[in-house]
Design a protein around this nucleic acid. Structure first.
Lengths: 343, 343
DNA sequence: TATGAGTGCTGAATCCATTTAGCACCGCCG
DNA sequence: CGGCGGTGCTAAATGGATTCAGCACTCATA
């Protein structure tokens, strides 16, 4: 690239036309009456000079920047967030847009600052993503700013993209039932009696609702429900050990997430029990972990990337926007942790 | 926020001054001779109206956008990339900058497009990050664009940020030696005889070099070196089983990464061997996994976040820039996988 | 031969903040 | 009283693209 930026005026001059004409031609305006020759000359000149429009100047005039703000509470911690970003990045790229990414740590002040920074840069729209789907607080925004919520909901902004947790929950149970399980099924992580008042997050309650609906539909009941506050491997381990000491007849585990399942694997190993011969396991998230486990963990995946992509598509789709929630299917990834119950 | 954007002219009018004066005051220009009253009136007006400068307009004039491009080959796959981004995001936020993030998948064409998109938006600088530190290809850029490489090197752009793998490699071996290991130490993942010609990545070869240097310094030799092409748990599992079938006298494993170590844990478990009583393990990366393992894996961490932050700091530091490579210390995270060798 | 429609294009305003050159005024000195 | 230096501020240009209003022509029609 040359030292001096090539401007539209340079292109116009080389083509022997006004910059007005050059602008219209390069933007492919339909109703213009410029000659074929003019078109050719301008395009040739632009190509020869390596012209690239200055988007700051264009943005100043048109109030469109081809830039989308992506506000996330956490990108580092979970792979979930980076999946969302990757999906969003891909969709944005397809639409020749670019993503201004910010991270707020869930802190209201940082969130306000981040939004100000984005608005100052005239983003065309903002995607708010959160890791623990909740009703998100959103500061005031210019009315023209389009907003899509990703893994979150908000009363003021109706457009949101969520995983279809209800269906996912049902799928998990169906998997077990299809393998022949009816008794000794335990729900690991959630206990509605204990947690009725607890705010976990709206998507998690849908997951639980789906699980319960499927159990009812099959006329089954959980042998027990284990409430676990923190869904980390260590807690899954402890809960599983305690569970089997109390009730050795457990044949299947529905784990609320893969980390819990990972802990369960470890506990089962220490107890001399084998997956899936002695106990079957289904879980949620399709964490990286799930593929590392031996045998592979069957899990209902969180469709991060597709969700990210959908959010951008929704943001960019003008006109026919599907109001309300967009539910994205959770993929059922069957590995090797489910088998018929031992006789 | 009001429907119409507040412009500098609005502020100036309300303060009873010209926009030139308002601009100077709001930007805190030092040598200006405007009165104290003028300062107060302008600041008051700006506050009352909620004035926010239009950065597109400013950028057009000043060629500074307070925006940094972050080009990464992969953000989704490894947590490594998101750590880099998080670190970069934090440092950028401190400096009131914002990050335009793009992902290229390592594809040259997407890379070129991404850079064009960033240059079009007049970014102040670009950070190129790659997951597998390599000599990165970078298309032509305007001469004024500052560039920092993150986990990569390039002959044309000397500024780069890398983990101090050589020191990290030495630290891993030192840990084992300090616990009393001298014999039966195996290097899992790398075999210089086999891989001499193989291009893995420049940082990995430094890691290996550090490991070897420390062994030499202690007057030790590996009982064996296992070459593994893909550093995934499955491969670590297979290699470890084969290793112990061949040589049951192995007392310690230096794993080239945590996923390999994870596989080794699984294999050891299946073989009835315990970590760290029967065999000690040190590894690299401080993957999320490492904390999930039982007992916790002692590992030399990749300082993602600090690296990301340093890259931004380097980019923004004008003047006294440390030419060349900035090496970031790898944290030694001691958990429970190293113990004195069994007698 | 005006009149009108159509064709191909341009001039100038506009978006908003920054910045340079310089105006108007004051008090003071010789 | 003329001139000089300092003080406090403003007009206008600038950056680059978009866009509206309209100019200068040609050709056909009444």
């Amino acid at each position: 690239m040359p030292a001096k930026r090539v401007t539209l005026a340079d292109v116009a001059k080389r083509a022997g036309l006004s910059s007005a004409a050059a602008s219209m031609i390069l933007n492919g305006r339909p109703d213009t009456r410029l000659s074929k020759e003019a078109h050719e000359r301008v395009h040739a000149a632009a190509a020869e000079l390596g012209y690239r429009p200055n988007l700051a100047a264009r943005g100043l005039r048109t109030d469109k920047t081809q830039t989308i703000g992506f506000v996330s509470d956490l990108v580092a911690t979970t792979r979930f967030a980076s999946g969302l970003i990757t999906g969003a990045l891909g969709a944005a790229e397809k639409a020749s847009h670019v993503l201004l990414v910010t991270e707020t740590g869930g802190d209201a002040r940082r969130e306000t600052d981040a939004i100000a920074a984005l608005v100052d840069r005239q983003v065309d729209g903002i995607v708010f993503a959160t890791m623990r789907a909740r009703d998100l607080f959103i500061p005031d925004l210019p009315e023209t700013t389009r907003v899509v919520l990703l893994n979150a909901t908000n009363t003021r902004y109706p457009l949101s993209v969520l995983p279809d947790e209800e269906a996912g929950g049902r799928a998990a149970v169906d998997l077990l039932v299809a393998a022949g399980h009816r008794d000794g099924i335990v729900l690991l992580g959630q206990n509605d009696d204990v947690e009725r008042e607890l705010f976990r997050s709206s998507t998690i309650s849908r997951r639980a609702a789906g699980i319960r609906a499927a159990m009812r539909a099959h006329g089954l009941e959980f042998a027990s429900e284990e409430s676990i506050w923190l869904w980390e491997p260590r807690n899954g381990y402890d809960a599983t050990r305690a569970l089997f000491e109390r009730d050795p007849g457990v044949r299947a585990l529905v784990c609320m997430n893969d980390r819990l399942a990972f802990g369960a694997y470890q506990a089962l190993g220490d107890l001399g029990l084998r997956v899936p011969d002695d106990v079957s396991i289904v879980s949620f998230d399709n964490d990286e972990l799930a593929s590392y486990l031996r045998p592979g963990l069957t899990t209902i995946g969180l469709p991060h990337e597709e969700m990210g992509a959908r959010a951008i598509e929704l943001l960019l789709a003008d006109g026919a926007t599907p109001e309300g929630e967009t539910l994205v299917d959770m993929p059922i990834v069957e590995r090797a942790s489910v088998a018929p119950p031992r006789a």
